[in-house]
Design a protein around this nucleic acid. Structure first.
Lengths: 105, 105
DNA sequence: ACACACTACGTCGAATCTGACATAGTGGGG
DNA sequence: CCCCACTATGTCAGATTCGACGTAGTGTGT
């Protein structure tokens, strides 16, 4: 990070220590993973609530059973995009998604 | 117009031509793009609040100025994944992201 | 034990997304 | 007008994610 950038960040109330920066990124990554887990859990809960199996959900959202399984498992090959789109296609409202995003697993 | 009314009109041979339908967007898709717009707006707001330019944000989140511009514009080539990861790296908490997800643009 | 319904997991070609680069556009000072 | 800092847009090769398929695992009823 150059000095000008550092100065501006400091002016905005940031500290530019290397350790903190590292921890900040870690926090961001951890929060992202937790969000993904929460969304995946919500997807499964929503499916079970509707008494659907993964194959039926796959048809509704335009995918395959195997991918639905990976979604619910929060597999590395599944994006948050996909999870959110799936939830919305299952009838979730934006506020429902928001709640899942904020929720702990 | 509620869905029941819309269905009745459709049965009578009418199309209920709102912008959504014209563009061929389902409710789920519309909600998704709205979410994306809200996240993009939040990213820009957060950057401006910190008095950073797009190049500085790009360094923080590990990307390029052009991509940050596209993020803020909610460009089609930008995923919700990327927007959320960017917000978190800029110091947003999960509840902040949730609020953006639920918010209207 | 068998059949059946359901879920998990590895793999793959195709589609999509990403960072980067180049370049164009915009809006203030001087 | 000319710089200058900043933002927007087009493009592209490489990376990631997607749906799909095959198959293995798990539980349940007969």
């Amino acid at each position: 990070m150059d000095k000008a950038t550092s100065r501006k960040l400091a002016a905005a109330g940031w500290t530019t220590g290397d350790a903190q920066e590292f921890l900040g990124l870690s926090d961001a990554e951890a929060a992202f993973v937790d969000m993904k887990l929460a969304l995946a859990a919500d997807l499964r809960a929503r499916r079970l609530e509707k008494h659907l199996n993964q194959t039926q959900v796959a048809r509704i959202i335009g995918s395959s059973q195997s991918r639905v399984a990976k979604m619910e498992a929060a597999d590395a090959s599944v994006s948050v995009d996909l999870l959110i789109r799936a939830l919305l296609k299952l009838g979730a409202e934006r506020r429902d998604v928001a709640q899942a995003v904020a929720a702990s697993v």
